[in-house]
Design a protein around this nucleic acid. Structure first.
Length: 289
DNA sequence: CACTTGACCTGTCCGC
DNA sequence: TGCGGACAGGTCAAGT
């Protein structure tokens, strides 16, 4: 589910909510989503204090006082939801909402803090994972070695964007944008939104794209991601942030999931097609092959 | 090597 | 109402 703006929204919420708290217990439903041994959990997780919450690409990192870090990937349907002891009303209460009924059938991991609050890792489709790693080893894992630059970093330039995309010259631009080793954090929503903004058809081969178009795409990608972070991300039926709240970017979407509706720029009906194996939304007038 | 496709899972929606 | 199939905001492994 979550792309860079959603993961960043969760990170900001968690940073406010759990830094300084001490983990007192942990439970998980299967080994698959949390492969660490009970011995590692007992030594490096239980009793640890949360020192920071970081993000790289779509991966969240919860740093602990034990010099270990919890790495978390939410994949398609993962949620990290914090519920304080005071929030727990139970079903039927006037303040009842989905977070107050946790844990539920989608809960894979539960962290309990010493003040009675909880952090729930929910994941309907079970693609997501959480694992404990020595903090110092993070830069050495395959993912960190391969992943591309953060698109919103100050030192990420249009020149670097072009050079990295050029390495995927013979594939289409949408597949190249979704490739995490080219640029970090782009997923299906913001790929479609940025391509609409830059007026580039998603099936265009990278090697046919002009410098002017690359430049437009660079600015559109950064603009759309910055706006999405400001709006708290995009919410479908599964995405909520650390406080259980939905994001509002979809109110501002120009192409994504707007098939059948008019293009906000020219009024032509937005169409849905399939590119790089993903549902893809375009304005057939603004974005031509 | 570069690139594409299928698999991983469960829930939902849509057409018969 | 029930059932089958397609599909869902991501990433790997396996295939061409």
């Amino acid at each position: 589910m979550p792309e860079l703006p959603e993961v960043e929204t969760v990170r900001r919420g968690l940073a406010e909510l759990i830094v300084g708290k001490t983990i007192s217990a942990e439970t998980h439903d299967t080994e698959k989503g949390f492969p660490n041994t009970p011995a590692d959990v007992a030594v490096f997780l239980i009793g640890a204090q949360v020192t920071a919450v970081r993000r790289r690409a779509k991966v969240l990192m919860i740093d602990l006082s034990t010099e270990h870090t919890l790495l978390i990937h939410l994949k398609m349907t993962g949620q990290l939801v914090f519920v304080s002891d005071n929030d727990r009303f139970g079903a039927g209460h006037p303040n009842d909402s989905l977070i107050h009924q946790l844990p539920d059938t989608s809960t894979r991991v539960t962290l309990t803090f010493s003040d009675g609050s909880h952090l729930f890792f929910n994941d309907q489709r079970k693609f997501g994972w959480m694992r404990l790693l020595p903090t110092i080893e993070i830069p050495n894992i395959t993912f960190m070695q391969k992943v591309g630059p953060e698109p919103l970093a100050n030192d990420f330039t249009v020149q670097e964007f072009m050079q990295r995309l050029a390495r995927r010259g013979r594939t289409n631009i949408k597949a190249a944008l979704l490739d995490q080793s080219v640029v970090a954090g782009v997923g299906n929503i913001y790929a479609d939104e940025a391509l609409w903004g830059a007026k580039i058809h998603p099936k265009r081969l990278v090697q046919t794209i002009t410098d002017e178009e690359f430049t437009a795409l660079y600015h559109e990608l950064r603009a759309v991601m910055n706006l999405a972070i400001k709006k708290g991300g995009s919410s479908n039926h599964t995405y909520i942030n650390a406080e259980g709240k939905r994001g509002s970017y979809m109110d501002f979407a120009r192409a994504f999931r707007r098939e059948g509706l008019p293009c906000p720029r020219c009024g032509t009906t937005i169409e849905k097609l399939r590119v790089a194996g993903r549902g893809t939304h375009i304005c057939p007038h603004c974005q031509v092959l």
